[in-house]
Design a protein around this nucleic acid. Structure first.
Lengths: 244, 244
DNA sequence: CGTCTCCTTGAGGTTGGTCAAACCAGGTGG
DNA sequence: CCACCTGGTTTGACCAACCTCAAGGAGACG
């Protein structure tokens, strides 16, 4: 079933960015309408990725960047000896594949955590187009740079925070990004398992579970399976900032 | 003393990249000679940074990228509440400031760990030039992407390795980069303090000291103050890979 | 020779990991 | 409708790794 070729879909040929409500969050951010139109031409197709399927694997040749239209992904990095870690979670408007530009191969593996759809932007064309459109160039730079900044945040988290603080930082970060997309900033549904959260935070699943339990005991959050709601936003934020 | 303006130096006006022995490691990597020449024009000046001095501070407006000609830097990220962490160490041929492109302000603070000299590349000019020189564009992308990949490595290290393995990974990484620059791959002089190593690795100084001691006891390395030499490269490498 | 910074070493405590068992929600099939 | 299975999650007891606190050593510099 998972090997079935995706049947051609009507929307695969629709105009993209110009009518996309993620315009102001995604790569075309701040571009002039004509520029957006040319970017549209470049986006040959959309691709659907079902929950659990790979968008791309680590080591695969890098050919395109992917902009998430809808859905949710995780990226993981692995080593020969079997160590594996989640490096991030991506949602609508985020770009996937930036790490492949340098080496020409993907550095991470991208897996859909729910049924998703992405815009495929062949990188060679994108680079060519960017020569004509300095704004596009700048936007691309901004996205790469933002990825670096985000990674620095992750490094700081892993290097300096305790387990409960990491969890708080994780929740605060997710909520922030969700609220920018119009969702509540008080409640969310986790798209990933405890195990994946743990991998991202450098913790074991048992610790994740215990810390969620503790935060709940202290009435900072309420947890029901994958639904989390924040009861004391201020306290959660302070925890995430490293306050004792 | 540290506030003295640097006296004008002759070499501040010399042609740069074309005659630089870091050409094949640095931004001009793989560029055609004409392109290198135009890049040279752009590099208005060099800047010397003494040991302990800031190249730029976090939050400062981003105006230029810096290519390290000689010397050694650390970059640190900090938060209001005083947490601070080293995000990386940079040596000749490395680019500093990439994280500032997106937000328009530097995300990290760059401090020289020894007397250093950098090429200043005003970013606005660089971006303009890159429109004319697709190869330069590509090189810039490669560097940004490489930074992302490097950060992923750091994340993996912080998330999955034990203290001794982190230290091994740190040493292996440094040695690799040094050997690419013509230095020995068996021995090195640490440019940073134990404290800075610990900050980078997410460990306390005492743990760094103990782990260095342990690796020495097991005759994997020999340590004399800041000089480290590798006695069993293979074992060190395996440790760094996460082998038990 | 004193002082400063950086580093090492030891004793004891805390955090998070390991191992093992049980739980729970959602599906499947009788 | 219920028994059973499955994957994901929770919980407890125990332990190892790392941190904290405190003391002392070693080199550099005035």
């Amino acid at each position: 079933m998972s090997k079935n070729p995706e049947p051609l879909r009507l929307d695969a040929l629709q105009a993209a960015c110009a009518s996309c409500n993620l315009r102001e969050l995604c790569l075309p951010m701040g571009l002039a309408p004509e520029a957006v139109e040319r970017l549209d031409d470049l986006i040959g197709l959309r691709r659907r990725v079902r929950q659990g399927e790979l968008l791309f694997d680590a080591g695969a040749p890098f050919e395109a960047l992917f902009a998430i239209r809808s859905g949710f992904f995780k990226t993981t990095i692995g080593t020969e000896d079997g160590r594996e870690q989640v490096t991030g979670f991506q949602m609508s408007g985020d770009l996937l594949g930036l790490d492949g530009i340098g080496p020409g191969r993907h550095d991470v593996r991208a897996v859909a955590l729910e049924d998703s759809s992405v815009c495929v932007m062949p990188f060679a064309s994108l680079e060519r187009l960017a020569v004509d459109l300095p704004d596009l160039q700048r936007s691309l730079h901004r996205f790469m740079s933002r990825e670096i900044v985000r990674d620095h945040g992750t490094i700081l988290m892993l290097g300096t925070l305790r387990a409960d603080q990491r969890l708080a930082a994780f929740l605060v970060g997710l909520l922030q990004r969700l609220s920018r997309r119009g969702y509540s900033s008080q409640a969310l549904v986790l798209r990933m398992t405890r195990d994946e959260i743990g991998s991202y935070l450098g913790l074991k699943i048992e610790t994740v579970s215990r810390m969620l339990g503790r935060l709940q005991d202290e009435a900072v959050i309420a947890v029901h399976q994958r639904e989390v709601s924040v009861l004391q936003p201020e306290r959660l934020r302070r925890l995430a900032e490293g306050a004792d």
